[in-house]
Computed example of a mutant assay.
Amino acid sequence: MDIDAAMRRKIVVSIVSVGAFFALFVGIGATFGPDLGETGGLALVGAIALFVLVMAGVGVILQD
Rank of each mutant, 00 (worst) to 15 (best):
S14E: 14
L44P: 05
G29N: 15
V13R: 08
A49C: 11
F51G: 10
D64M: 08
I61L: 00
G33T: 01
R9W: 07
G19V: 02
L50E: 00
G29R: 14
I15F: 10
A6I: 06
A30W: 11
G40T: 10
I48D: 06
D35R: 11
A49G: 10
G29V: 14
A6P: 00
I48F: 15
G19A: 11
A56L: 11
V13W: 05
L62C: 10
G40W: 07
I61P: 04
G41Q: 12
F21A: 13
F51T: 11
V18W: 01
G46S: 11
A23W: 14
V54L: 13
A20D: 13
G57N: 11
M1G: 02
Q63G: 05
L62M: 11
G57K: 01
A20F: 14
V26L: 15
G41F: 09
A43D: 01
L50M: 00
I15Q: 13
A56H: 06
M1R: 05
V58E: 14
V60R: 08
L50F: 09
L36K: 02
G37V: 09
Q63T: 01
G46E: 10
A6N: 06
F22Y: 00
F22H: 09
L42R: 01
R8K: 11
G59S: 03
A6K: 06
G19N: 01
F32L: 08
L44D: 07
D35Q: 12
V45K: 08
A56C: 03
G57D: 08
D64Q: 02
K10Q: 04
V18D: 05
T31G: 00
A56P: 03
I48C: 09
V45W: 13
A5W: 00
A20C: 14
V45R: 09
F51I: 13
G19W: 12
F32C: 09
R9G: 09
K10T: 00
L24I: 06
V52M: 01
G29I: 14
S14N: 15
S14K: 13
A20P: 07
V26G: 14
F32S: 12
E38G: 15
V60P: 06
T39G: 07
A49M: 00
A23H: 07
V13N: 08
G40Y: 02
V52P: 10
V16T: 13
V60S: 05
G57L: 13
Q63N: 05
G59I: 01
V52Y: 02
G40P: 10
V26F: 15
F51E: 07
F32R: 03
D2T: 07
L24Y: 02
I61V: 02
P34R: 11
V26T: 15
T31R: 08
M7P: 03
A30L: 15
A23T: 08
G37F: 07
F51P: 00
V45A: 04
E38W: 15
D2K: 03
L44T: 02
I11E: 07
V16G: 09
P34H: 13
I48S: 10
A30Q: 15
V58K: 12
A30I: 12
V45E: 04
G59N: 04
D4W: 01
G59K: 11
A47L: 08
L24M: 02
G37W: 07
T39D: 05
V16L: 13
A20N: 03
G41I: 10
I11Q: 03
D4G: 05
D64W: 10
